[in-house]
Nucleic acid binder design. Sequence first.
DNA 1: CTAGGGTTAG
Length: 754
Amino acid sequence: MASLPPVVVGNTSKLNPEVKKLPSPSVPFEKKNYSTKESDRAFASLSLEFREAFSLIGGGDRKIESSSYVPLLQECIDTNSVSGVESIHGHIVKAGFCQELFLMTFLVNTYAKCGMMESARRLFDSLPKRNVVTWTSLMSGYVHNSRPESAISVFKEMLDVGGYPTNYTLGIVLNACSSLFDIELGKQIHGYIVKYDIEYDASIGNALCSLYSKCRSLDMAINAFQRIEEKNVISWTAVISACGENGNSAMGLDVFVQMLAEGVQPNEVTLTSVLSICCTMQALDMGTQVHSLSIKIGCGSDLAVTNSIMYLYLKNGCISEAKKLFDGITTISLVTWNAMIAGHAEMTSLAEDGLSAYFYGIEALKIFQRLNRSGLRPDLYTFSSVLTVCSSLVALEQGEQVHAQTLKTGFLSDVVVGTALVNMYNKCGSINRASKAFVEMSTRTLISWTSMINAFAQHGLAQQALQLFEDMRFVGVRPNKITFVGVLSACSQAGMIDQALAYYDMMINEYKINPVMDHYACLVDMFVRLGQIYEAFDFIKKTDLVPNEFIWSILIAGSRSQGKLELGFYAAEQLLELKPKDSETYFLLLNMYLSAGRWKDVSRVRKMMRDEKVDKITDWSWISIRNKVYTFKPGSKKNQASEVAKILEDLHDRARRLGYQVETNMAIVDEEKEEATALPADHSEKLAVAFGLLNTSNEAQIRVIKSISMCRDCHNFIKVVSILTSRTIIIRDSKRLHKFFNGQCSCGDFGGLV
DNA sequence: CTAGGGTTAG
C-alpha cells in the first residue's frame, strides 16, 4: 500500500479543528399566523402546475407551514423548472417565511440545482444569517454548474467569516479541486483531513478517491478508498473507475469481482464503469455477463448502461446485437448517437478488409445524418468521431461540411475536434489545410502536435516535421513514442541517416522511451531507401528484433527494387509464415516467383494457396463523386468497351511514350485466373482514377480508396498520369496514402510497394 | 448540503 501524501500545512489556519462538533444544521421551524387574505393572495401567485401540487398537500388551507414548500421546491429540482422556483420564491416572500434559515437554504439549493447561480448568489447575499449548509449549498451549486473556481472562492469566504466546514463541505471542495486539477489545494485539504483524522468518512474518502484518480494518481486513489471505514457502493464504484481511468483495467475488473464477493450490490453507475472497462479491454465475455447482471438487478433499461453495452458490442463487431439495443431505446440521447457513430468509426480500423471498413464508414455517416435530422444537436464527441470517419473514407467534401458545422456551432475551438480536423485534412491529402487547421488551434495537446508532425512526415515534408518537433519541445510539450515515429519516419523518407540516429538516441536517452517496432521499421526503411539493404538486415540482427509484417514488406520492396531476389524471397516466405491467412502475401510471393521464372516455387505456392483456399484477392477501389460512391473491380470484360476503358487505353498509350513500361507479371486478378496473370492487369484503382478523370472538372483532385496495397506497376502508371492530366491524384491503399502530383508520389516511391 | 457513470483526436 502506498503511503499517504505529505501533510501540506499551507493556508489551512482558517480551517476549524472542531469539525466533529458542528452545530446541527437544521434550524427549528417557527410557526406564525397569517391572515387569510395574505395566504390566498400568495396561493394565487403560484403557477398553475404548482397550485395543483399545492392543493394536494392542503395548500388552500391557511395554516400552511414553511416545511410544506420543500416538496414543491424538490419538484422544481426534479423537473428543472426555472419559473417554478421563482414563483414559489415569490410565494414564500409573501408568506413571510424569509427568516426561515432552513427554507432559505433549501431555496438557494433549488436555484443552484436549476442552474440559476446568479439568483442563488443574490438570495444568499440577501440573507441575514447563514449556516454551514447554506454555504455548502452555494458551493455545491457552483461545482455542479461548472464553476469550480467560484466554489473555492465561496469556501474561502466562509472560512474568512469563521464558518466551520463539515465533511460534506470538504467533499465539495475536493470535488472542485478535482475539476480544476488543483492538486495543491487538494493536498492542503487532505492535510487537514489527516490532521483531524476524518479519512474514514465515506463522503470524504470517496471525494479523495476521485480527486486522486483524476489527478492520475491511482495509488493515492486506492489508498483513500482503503481508509474508508464503511465503504458504500459509491466508494467501490469510485475506485473501480479510478482503475479504469488510470490504465489498470484488469485491476478494475478484479475490484469489481471483489466487491461482488463482499456482498455489495452494484448499481447502474457501477455497471457502466465496469462496462467501460470491458470496452477498453475488448472483454466481450465479461461485458456480456455484466449485461445479464444488469438485467437481473433491474437496471437493464438504464440509458447509460444500455449505451455502454451497445458500444461494447459495436467495438467487438456484434453489429446486430448493438442494433437490437439501439432500436429498443425509447428516448435516444446524444450519447447514444455518439456511441453508435464512434462504434462504427472504430470498426473502420478494426475491419478485416478495406471493403467492409468502407461500408462501416458509410454507415457511420448515415447515422450522423439521422442524428442531424432527429432534432438533437451534435456535440464535440459527435464531430470528433465523424471527422475520423471522413478521414478513413478520404471523404473531403463531407469533411468540409463537418468543418463548417463545427465552426458554426463553436465546437471547432475544442482541442479534440481541432486535432480530428487536422487529421481529416491530412488523410484527405491536403497538407496545407491540415497545417492551417493546426495553426488556428488555440490550444494544442501532445496528440495535436504529434498528428501534425506525422502529417508532415507522411507527406514527405521532413524539414517541416522536424521544425515542428523542435517547436513542440520549445513550448515544453514532452514527446511520446508516437511523436518519435513521426520524427524518425520524416528522417527516413529524406534519407537523413545521421539525424535519424541522433533522434533515436534522444528518444532512448533523453526521454527514456523504449523503441517499439514502428521505430525499428523507420530505421529499416531508411537503410533500404539508401540502398543499404544488407545494413538493414544487420540492424535487425543487431537489435535482436523479431520483425513484424511491416518490416518484412519493407525488406521485400527493397530487395525487389535493388534486384536482390534471394533476400526478397526469403523475406516474403517469412512474411507468409507470419501471416498465413493473408491472401495479399500469397499473391505477392506468387508474382515474385513468376517474374523470376521459378516454376517449381510457383506451383508450390499455388498448392499452398489451394490448401488455404486462397484463390482470389478482393481488389476493390471506390471513388466518391458528388456524394455518390462508385465501386470498381479489376478490369472485367464489361469495362472494356466503356468510356473508362477508352480513357485508360489512351492514357496507357501516352504514358508509354513518356517511358512508362507495363509490368506484365502482376497476378492480382480474380476470376479469369490463368490468362489474367499474363496480361497487364487493369487493377481497380486505374479504373477508378479513369472514372474520376471523366466525371470531374479539370482541376479537381481525384481521391480513391483501395482495399489492398498498390502494386508497383499501378504506382508507376499513376505517377505518369498525374503528369499527363496535371491533376493531383490521391490513393489511400491498405497501407498508406499516396499523393501523386507532377510525376511524384508523397510516399517517395517506397514503403511496402510490391 | 455529499460522493461514483455512458460517447471524442495521433
